[in-house]
Measured scan of single mutants.
Amino acid sequence: SSQSQGISSSSTSTMPNSSQSSHSSSGTLSSLETVSTQELYSIPEDQEPEDQEPEEPTPAPWARLWALQDGFANLECVNDNYWFGRDKSCEYCFDEPLLKRTDKYRTYSKKHFRIFREVGPKNSYIAYIEDHSGNGTFVNTELVGKGKRRPLNNNSEIALSLSRNKVFVFFDLTVDDQSVYPKALRDEYIMSKTLGSGACGEVKLAFERKTCKKVAIKIISKRKFAIGSAREADPALNVETEIEILKKLNHPCIIKIKNFFDAEDYYIVLELMEGGELFDKVVGNKRLKEATCKLYFYQMLLAVQYLHENGIIHRDLKPENVLLSSQEEDCLIKITDFGHSKILGETSLMRTLCGTPTYLAPEVLVSVGTAGYNRAVDCWSLGVILFICLSGYPPFSEHRTQVSLKDQITSGKYNFIPEVWAEVSEKALDLVKKLLVVDPKARFTTEEALRHPWLQDEDMKRKFQDLLSEENESTALPQVLAQPSTSRKRPREGEAEGAETTKRPAVCAAVL
């Protein structure tokens, strides 16, 4: 046999249950609850290399294929790409003598399909299967379609040439079993990697079954959420508030809700932002270029202005709740996480202390139980975000031990490091100062900020419009641009040419 590394010779191994799959997660993409704000000051410096380099560890398999027929071997997927077919160049070659004697062998292509993985959001991997055969590759009886790919989820059954000719079961060793999710959700989405997690739940990458488009699904544990919100009269209202707010909003710089499922837990389906959180971008770069800050901040102002015009105060604006559309420097941003939002009543007064301390406005800290506050709290938070983006460190921090965090904020005395700000323009610093004003009545509004000289930049605004146009074009394009080929190089076993392929839609398939 010419099988590559990772293939075992026996096809009769006992199949494990899916609970053996491991679970991976990374930083929070968007969480309903406010958790302790991640610290920006503690960015690790590059460490000196050791005298002796450690040995390379043996790579762990990321997936496993269990053979369902004699003549096929099990495969431990270690590499990122595997070709399957009769050709000797394939990493998994159909060359077992037992297999060659079967009637089905002649229906398999020289290069029938490939399984591979690509880097997705949060640097996690996504597994795909890609059909290159004349007679078809099927996943859970659905045709992939020649020249098309679809994501592979845990426990997928792979069939060759005929939908009933099941050859492998695919085990993704990095994700959960699909069966743990409600059927209504599974009918519409293929669940994938964990993108982030918080005290009350997690955010998962998923794929729409009909279109193969990526989405983010925010899962909120009702049990954990009820415990964490025990002081509230009705904890469920917080989730329902977020859903109702998101459904009503329609702005290019605000995250869109696509679906909602109320089962044992809450499942909020949101558009996916491939670039992750602004927080991670700031930490990764230490600070952002001023031109990049301007492009992002302009969009934040437009989003918050839209919220305020619609009578909504976000109340928890922070870099973790600003998501980026891509890994590119120039990209769209979207505001997310409306769990603490407040729809303005007639009095415009709110007395609930919520939000993240580092970003809270002075009037929030001094008015607990005594007075109210209004939309100006969001403008203060925007000032803190702009400060961080321009400088790479927070204006107020618990680690300045000589003054408490509350006193720093209520006095408006931010930590100004001259040598850092020497590289920032006077106009940018002036806008920061106009937003970090203790008196909410004297603080800049979103309208005033948008009129500030720093943002009178036609090149930046043109760039934003171009990015918007690109997004609109990409969302308007159909996901499947061509029909699967019906040509046949070899006959199917026991049926006429093209008899099955043309009847089945290529579900969740995307043209390369």
Score class of each variant (00 low, 15 high):
K248W: 11
N250S: 07
H251R: 08
I255M: 07
K256C: 13
K256H: 05
A263W: 12
D265Y: 14
D265Q: 13
D265K: 13
M273Y: 03
E274C: 13
G275E: 07
G276D: 05
L278H: 02
L278Q: 02
F279V: 05
K281M: 10
V282S: 02
V283T: 10
G284D: 09
L288I: 05
A291H: 12
C293I: 12
Y296M: 15
Y298F: 09
Y298K: 10
Y306E: 03
N310R: 12
N310K: 08
N310V: 04
I313F: 01
I313R: 06
D316A: 07
D316S: 01
D316C: 00
N321P: 00
V322L: 07
S326H: 02
E328G: 07
E329N: 05
D330R: 12
C331A: 00
I333L: 05
I333C: 00
I333Q: 00
T336E: 00
D337Y: 04
F338I: 01
F338K: 04
G339R: 06
S341P: 02
K342Y: 08
G345T: 07
E346F: 05
S348G: 15
L349G: 13
L349A: 13
M350A: 12
T352N: 01
L353M: 06
L353R: 07
G355H: 02
G355K: 06
T356V: 00
T358A: 09
T358F: 14
Y359R: 01
L360R: 05
P362S: 02
V364G: 06
S367G: 13
S367K: 00
N374P: 03
N374K: 08
A376V: 12
S381E: 12
L382Y: 02
L382S: 09
I385V: 07
C389T: 08
P394K: 10
V403M: 11
D407Q: 03
I409L: 08
T410N: 03
S411W: 02
N415M: 08
V420R: 11
W421P: 09
A422G: 03
K427N: 10
K434Y: 14
K434E: 13
L435C: 00
V437I: 07
P440A: 01
K441R: 11
T446F: 13
E447A: 07
E447S: 08
R451I: 11
L455R: 00
K463Q: 15
L467A: 01
S469Y: 12
E471K: 03
S474E: 11
P478Q: 02
P478Y: 15
Q479G: 02
Q479L: 08
A482C: 02
Q483V: 12
Q483S: 02
P484F: 00
P491Q: 13
A496T: 12
T502W: 15
K503P: 10
R504P: 02
A509G: 14
A510G: 12
L512T: 10
